[in-house]
Amino acid sequence: MRACNNIVAISDIDTRRLTRILREKGAQGGAVVTGPSVDSAAAIDLARSFPGMKGMDLAREVTTGETYQWDQGSWSLDDAAWGEGEGEAERHVVAYDFGVKRNILRILVDRGCRVTVVPATTPAAEALSLQPDGIFLSNGPGDPEPCDYAIEAIRAFIARKLPVFGICLGHQLLGLAAGARTVKMKFGHHGANHPVQDLATGQVMITSQNHGFAVDEDSLPDHVKATHRSLFDDSLQGLELSSAPAFGFQGHPEASPGPHDIAGIFDRFISNIDEAKAAGNVTLLKKA
């Protein structure tokens, strides 16, 4: 699998020493060189050629080329089969793919959503023409700031008061669309054991994390509220808008891998969709 996917990998190195260096100096450019013989000096030059993640739009590189439907639910250990979701899947979610993890899509299907996955650069008008009941903004790599196409689309969804839920990069893009700033972190959060506090209830949940950028809590405008914070470094982990049913979570509630403590946050997106549908907001918009 490794060789056919052309991924380089190195074993038998002191990962404790490496991790200490990264913690002290921050994430940095690097190079892995493998072969019958390797040249360390050339590898250092190669490592220094990496321009850094800041300003790098990678969502555009990893996104899907075409729109597609996703209808697979979570794997059932009892049935030894993929789930098919509940009921008639009456909620239509348009999921922006900035580098989406499949388990997110499966969890949406489990919760009765029909999911249409669209490329990262899909304009708002095109997404709206699919008549979504809610918009999901996926996780993804790189810096959120250069993703101006997505930020513009999200602003249109917020203005229409469509239910919006963002995870990871999607959360950062929602923050930028709402007027906040994002910052590059020193070494980021990557792991499956990060404590995060729900600021409304005080509850602490152990979460899966993977991000190198974060929304700066100090930059949140008045209509955006902080909802979660990391207990490792107090960085912002969740936000919600008061002007629209839109919220985001920085960590990974879909786990995969990791604990499921915060999986319930998906239910909030579902309730927002159901409330908007009940209030007729979404239906009215469809006619407009």
């Binding site: 490794r2 994430a27 690097g30």
Partner: peptide, 28 residues
Amino acid sequence: AVLALEDGNVFLGRSIGANGESVGEVVF
């Protein structure tokens, strides 16, 4: 196999994947 960092640190090891070279941000 060698992993080099931009600060000049070098880690020599054993290759367990494809042969070649790759550049990126080193995270843990």
